[in-house]
Design a binder for these strands. Structure first.
Lengths: 161, 161
DNA sequence: GGAATATGATTCAAACTTGAATCAATCTAT
DNA sequence: ATAGATTGATTCAAGTTTGAATCATATTCC
């Protein structure tokens, strides 16, 4: 695993960080997703869509914006909204300002589903993540993770450099 | 997002850490997966299977063990091994000690694919993750992430407490 | 030693994701 | 104004993941 290719290979510390990252992020995501599905019938991506809409102005957001904030492709979001709409948790509303555009809108029923799912989900996030972190760890992550996420926002801005 | 349900809701710091965690882990995983698929035709899960086998005794591992070390369900691994075997990158070998069991074995061709993919993949991991971390951050993650991952190993051991 | 149970692995159908193709509306530059 | 390019969103087919069901072999315990 350390061939001579001219690439700057990972150091021992980086390798430990990276392998730990992979395993921790995968196991935590899987455990939380599993809990959420069983307790509420929502996938984690469903939940994120509902939370994002619940916090948006008028409980509505344009499809393209929603796809960016929930980190999924336009196609994936479009089909997810199809399914959530079939279940009555969201609705589509055309955009008057730009006739190509659509809003996804959280319904009362969608908000109720979110409210019903939230306590169990928070408990699961605690049990799977925060119960294993010290207060200092939390401070560290609250600075580091948004910083890592924002590197992608910056990248997008000068994509054509 | 902070209803009165008797649940210990997330503090401001925890909320920032959790939202950052979600976005950073998703974006980093998506970017690295995308790079790997384009550069090598392997998915990230394919790559993990090949790396794990390359480091195993005799380049072989039992299906159940491989499923655990690569964090995927038995069914998902079985179908992944089908596809990797179709492409000649792994083989199945029956287990003599336990006639129910099977080994997945990395082929020479599989090892060659892994070696071809590795430099580009490492570069992608650097660009998407380590380039945005200080040496201290790396030390922190190298301790924290394996600790979080290991909480699941412990959980498994006293699953029947 | 044989019935009951547990384990290792695969198969199946339904649900989901992917990326390319499509389609309509808007912007740009003549 | 209008051709050409771009943008917002959906659709389509192929590939992937899910969890339950299945099947064969092993283990347990009377």
């Amino acid at each position: 695993m350390t061939p001579n290719t001219g690439v700057a290979w990972l150091t021992g510390e980086e390798d430990a960080a990276w392998r730990g990252w992979i395993e921790a992020t995968q196991r935590i995501a899987a455990a939380i997703e599993h809990d959420l599905r069983n307790d509420s019938g929502l996938t984690f991506d469903d939940y994120e869509v509902l939370v994002t809409l619940s916090e948006a102005d008028g409980r509505a957001q344009r499809m393209s914006e929603l796809a960016m904030s929930t980190v999924q492709s336009a196609s994936r979001l479009s089909q997810r909204i199809d399914r959530l709409a079939d279940r009555g948790l969201v609705e589509r509303r055309p955009c008057e300002e730009d006739k190509r555009g659509w809003f996804a809108v959280l319904t009362d029923e969608g908000l109720a589903s979110l409210a019903a799912a939230a306590p169990g989900h928070v408990e699961s996030v605690r049990r799977n993540l925060f119960d294993h972190l010290s207060p200092d760890d939390v401070v560290t992550l609250a600075e580091m993770m948004p910083r890592l996420a924002s590197s992608f926002h910056a990248a997008r801005a000068h994509a054509d450099d």
